[in-house]
């Protein structure tokens, strides 16, 4: 079986700077698996998510990333998305002047087009949005606004999960999706994520805190420190971290 995602000895630095942020990062994710990556601030978690999604500001100095056996790093961000990779942003941006519905429809149809599928008709699209947004407690009012404009922190995260539910990616990378969420919002978001779990779809859940993993229960937990994975275990590793903190790992790294 080909792994969905294979990251091999990845070294990354910010363009124009000397300091390496990822320093020999390795990860293999198979279809159906949910991986949690935990780590202290500054361990390179967000850099990993941006590099996977294709943000320009980084320089890959060594290593490779294979997505379904193909070189992911050669693909444009929109090609990665159309190929089924989705990044739920830690800080989703506000885009004044671009209507949320226009954005959703443009994104969905662009991906379908790239994959050689037909565009979704407006009624079909509306039906789909209504179904997915209801499940995530997203109001009609939110849908009428420009992308993320005036959304609260929790609304922005639900907006990310709505996009994920509509676009039906095969690999979901979630960057600190729990940050800024209260207990109720955390439950809504987690339910939305869990509804997407199936045997074909894999998830990489990046988080600082263990509490998200009570809701989205991972198959594998990795501890990341100073740009690489320093320990891998089952879901009980997350609980252990909650008790002992990251200090032991940052010292080891």
């Amino acid at each position: 079986m080909t792994a969905l995602l294979e990251i091999k000895n990845l070294h990354v630095k910010v363009e124009g700077e000397d300091k390496e942020i990822l320093r020999g990062f390795n990860l293999t994710v198979n279809p159906g698996e949910v991986h949690a990556i935990m780590g202290p601030n500054g361990s390179g978690k967000s850099t990993l998510s941006y590099v996977l999604a294709g943000k320009d500001d980084y320089e890959i100095t060594e290593g490779e990333v294979l997505y379904k056996g193909e070189d992911l790093l050669e693909m444009e961000p929109d090609e990665r998305a159309a190929a089924g990779l989705f990044l739920a942003f830690q800080y989703p941006v506000e885009i004044p002047g671009v209507a949320f519905m226009t954005f959703l429809k443009t994104a969905l149809n662009a991906q379908r087009k790239t994959r050689g599928e037909g565009e979704l008709s407006t009624p079909d699209f509306m039906r789909l949005v209504k179904e997915k947004s209801t499940a995530l407690n997203i109001s009609q009012d939110m849908l009428k606004r420009p992308v993320n404009v005036g959304f609260s922190g929790g609304e922005k995260k639900r907006s990310e999960i709505l996009q994920m539910a509509l676009l039906q990616p095969e690999l979901c990378v979630m960057d600190e999706t729990d940050s800024g969420l209260d207990i109720d919002a955390l439950r809504v978001v987690s339910d939305g994520v869990n509804a997407l779990r199936d045997a074909e779809r894999a998830m990489v859940v990046i988080t600082h805190y263990q509490r998200l993993l009570n809701h989205i229960v991972p198959d594998v937990v990795h501890v990341m420190a100073a740009g690489r994975i320093v320990k891998t275990g089952g879901k009980e590793l997350a609980l252990e971290l909650e008790q002992s903190g990251y200090a032991a790992f940052t010292e080891a790294a």
Binding site: G54, A82, V98, A107, A110, T114
Partner: peptide, 29 residues
Amino acid sequence: DEDLLFYLRARGIPEVTAKALLIEAFIGE
């Protein structure tokens, strides 16, 4: 804004279309 452009592209919107959306939003007001 490169961050807005990246967000749109990360959702599968090709660069030209993404730029068009942002330019039209700019003059929309």
